[in-house]
Amino acid sequence: MSTQTAEPDLQSSTSDETVIEMRHVSTKFGEHVVHTDINLEIHRSEIFAIIGGSGSGKSTLLREMILLQQPSSGTIKILGTDLNGISEESALALRKRWGVMFQNGGLFGALTVKENVGLPMREHTTLSDAEIDEIADKKLVMTGLKPEASQQYPSELSGGMMKRAALARALSLDPELLFLDEPTAGLDPVSAAGVDELVIQLRDQFKLTVVMITHDLDLLWRVTDRVAVLADGKVQEVGSMLALSKSNHPAVKPFFTGHRARSLQEQQINALHA
């Protein structure tokens, strides 16, 4: 599998600060319209979140970015490569440059945690088994998983540990771009706070660009640089949480009203002023 590695467009991604560019992206499933004319730009080393109600097509948008689905029309460019009609070689080259953490982890049940983390390296690099094990251990430590957990199977892990293991696997090829699907969903508040820290730390240490889908207001306030609000198949507004919280847009406002959102917002604004 590792014999052919098409050279990715390195220069275009370093000279251009835009890592992900979506132009006029529309998606239809038969009669059902999911997106119409979505335009987004995500910059390097940015933590970008996509929010929206259930069924607003956030997951579909994410799946289109990671080559699991194709939009009906429009162009998506990632790290300078157009995903439309992409060849198998360049798709593989791209896939090696990004990591994806799925909502349920997507860890392989037949493999231990350590084997899961080592698998991408085993597939795509010529490293020896010893080296792979060593790197896998490092990734697991980095994501805060205890060494004992590395020999366990995914079914034996708690929700928080599973997310950490999934993150470790997403990071195993040292990606430039990280996609997170609901990174804190189903976690207790302490584990969720741990994920917040982890995401910030990864961005600061490795200059990763992070794209996430989430409902978690804590996470949104604490880590994101910019947030896109998806509703009625369109991007209604893009901006920092602070800017969005002041918006009067009817599709944006519901996220910031209601007592849960309001108390958090006050805390965050106080923290910013302090």
Binding site: R63, L68, N104
Partner: peptide, 17 residues
């Protein structure tokens, strides 16, 4: 089928396998 439900198939594709 179980792998499809637990997103393992998607994960496999995104890992380039």
């Amino acid at each position: 089928g179980t792998m499809a439900v637990t997103e393992e198939i998607d994960a496999m594709r995104t890992l380039g396998i």
